[in-house]
Nucleic acid binder design. Structure first.
Lengths: 218, 218, 218, 218
DNA sequence: TATGAATGAGTATTCATTCAT
DNA sequence: AATGAATGAATACTCATTCAT
């Protein structure tokens, strides 16, 4: 039955979610992202629930199993990373500076936390994921293309090369073994970016990779 | 009771181990390295024993707990990596070529498998580990110093920078999620090496890191 | 405060229930009976609520716990079965035909669903249940007595024998494992009825049982 | 590697199982059968392990999941029931007496415990099960055929009719709600047998059923 | 020494029941 | 009165480690 909300929008079968439920959901996702980064994707869900300040069953109500939760975190991180790419594109005059800014920003968004989530049973074909990945790929591709057009980015690299190296270099160590690890990470990223700059200083083996190439059957 | 070995050395309470025991130990370490790389350090020990072709209790006889086994694998990988560094030093005329060769060789030795082993309860102060780490650090430092002397390596990087980035870039994805992942890795390493080359194309944040800096308390 | 209903009866503290509440209650009982038959009495109450088209908390408002709900379903099935017995008595000229008709009718009323409800913590002494059981026993006893008087029913069986065998033979298989199971059931009932017919073809062990005998302490 | 045992038999890859393991396995199966009969197939496995006097993980070593355990119990009950059928055939002169004896013996073997095991996710196509079922069907079919040949069994029933009714009539009540339930059961079986005897006292609906007809798609 | 078996402690997940809207 | 959400108390199942052969 259609109802009319205060804003005048007609809705079907989607009653406004309760405020506390929305708050819980957000708290769970936030806690999950933090703990995936800190302890890896095997972290006990009960601990995530505890950090989120909810009962374990509440977590399961929102995310029926671990994969569901992981997927939501992945998509959320991807989305925020894409936003950073767009911001860098919009706000930086120099195209290679834009790329640099994006790379460091992605590290701050904990994009490295995505790596362990690409594991085994994870459904890489989920529509929601595919959509978000396309959006991310498009944004980063734009950044790279502009830098390439300006003659600042070497020709033999593609978006997959950047994103995978970026994820790996920022990937968290299990148990946050090293306190000031973040400091190092930004050094590594800077070095990698220097390697990306044109003119190329060496010949790369293999061929440029898109995100598509990262699927198992590639 | 002292026994005399073939080499003439007198030993106490350490009879020459049975040949099959030695073989078992080696098979266990080899299986563990493979499976840590493929599935991460959480892989069930029973599975390692199975791949090694021994009973689980045999594994426990040789390595009383998981940490012990991890440590042996770590030390073994470090040792082989050091050997590769020495070989590169000895056999490559150009110092930066030697560095390149070492980096790719270390990847082939699965040095990335070391990362997850730096986790949580791992005893980073174990004498055996410290000794092996010193040996590795010394060898890599030598490689870098020679390249720096030749004006081929930028001044603002140290052995810790190289080793951590190297480990991270070659770190295996859980569940070997991507078939031709190795191919990518060598591209990333090459790009990183290009970034290491002198003259420096940017200013790095922070300061050069030794392996020592990677300890928790640093 | 007393209120006066349409029928003129004075009632205390029991205002006429809202029409939708009555409808909900009936839908819950109907859904419960179906699902108890199909999946057994362990079926999640949330599922029953879902099939009834109400929220789970509504179910709990009407039936504070599972036993309460089970009891209502049991009583309702018993009541409908008694009605069938009365109808058979009234409408069939031949007394054994009446018995046959009742047995098959009881199967259609899913009397077999009663069996699993006799379990564990179920309160077999609840007044409502006792009353309904007495009514059922009286009706079936009447049917049997008439058949016996006519020399059509063997002498060595009582109402308990019939009702238990009837419940067991029509008891649903868990998960409705077999599609055309109902077809079989009516064959079995027919065979059992043939065995009830006089003259007795064998000597039965034990002694005739009333419904009373089915209580735990008997 | 082939080894020669004391009995001179050559064996491959099948070392003699340890005596204690065999004992444990048997204890588990026995406990499971008892508890399935008493509480139904949903009984907690930990409780079965407890009654068997072993740790829960020992149960899981022998039977990886609940279905595996259920299957073993089912097969074991079927097997013992078949043995009873063979014994009845061999030792009773009168064919209908043999059938009677078998029916009561099957009840004593708790054949009713099989009913709840035919539920939902149970793999009815498992080779071991099919083999045992064939053996049982053959034995019971022989019993019935002999009785039919002697003119003692009505023509319009088949092995499926007997086995299903037998299972249902002996099916345990949940929670062993009724102490002397067994006594009743044998009365019901006797009545049912009287109904099976020739000449038929009524016309049965449907058609004779084999065990094959009990599969879902039938 | 080598090994299959045993086990307790841990984690994921479900569900009856209560709470807040 | 009706409901979606929250929760703790189960239960299935896994795995590191110890035990018995």
């Amino acid at each position: 039955m259609a109802t009319v909300t205060r804003t005048g929008t007609a809705q079907r079968n989607a009653p406004r979610p309760r405020a506390d439920a929305v708050r819980n959901r957000e708290r769970i996702v936030a806690a999950a992202r933090e703990m995936f980064v800190e302890f890896g994707p095997e972290v006990p869900l009960d601990e995530i629930a505890r950090r989120a300040g909810v009962g374990n069953a509440t977590l399961y109500r929102h995310f029926p199993d671990r994969d569901e939760l992981i997927r939501h975190v992945v998509v959320s991180v991807m989305s925020r990373t894409t936003d950073r790419a767009d911001a860098a594109t919009a706000e930086e005059a120099d195209p290679f500076d834009a790329l640099r800014r994006f790379v460091h920003a992605a590290a701050d968004e904990r994009i490295g936390a995505l790596c362990p989530m690409l594991a085994d049973g994870f459904d890489k074909e989920h529509p929601e994921l595919l959509a978000e990945r396309a959006r991310l790929e498009h944004a980063v591709d734009g950044l790279m293309e502009r830098a390439r057009q300006a003659g600042r980015l070497r020709d033999d690299v593609a978006v997959g090369d950047l994103m995978v190296a970026l994820s790996q270099l920022t990937r968290p160590l299990p148990g946050s073994a090293c306190v000031n690890f973040d400091q190092f990470v930004h050094r590594h990223l800077q070095l990698f970016l220097d390697g990306l700059e044109a003119p190329a200083r060496s010949v790369l083996p293999g061929s440029p990779a898109t995100l598509e190439d990262l699927r198992r059957e590639s």
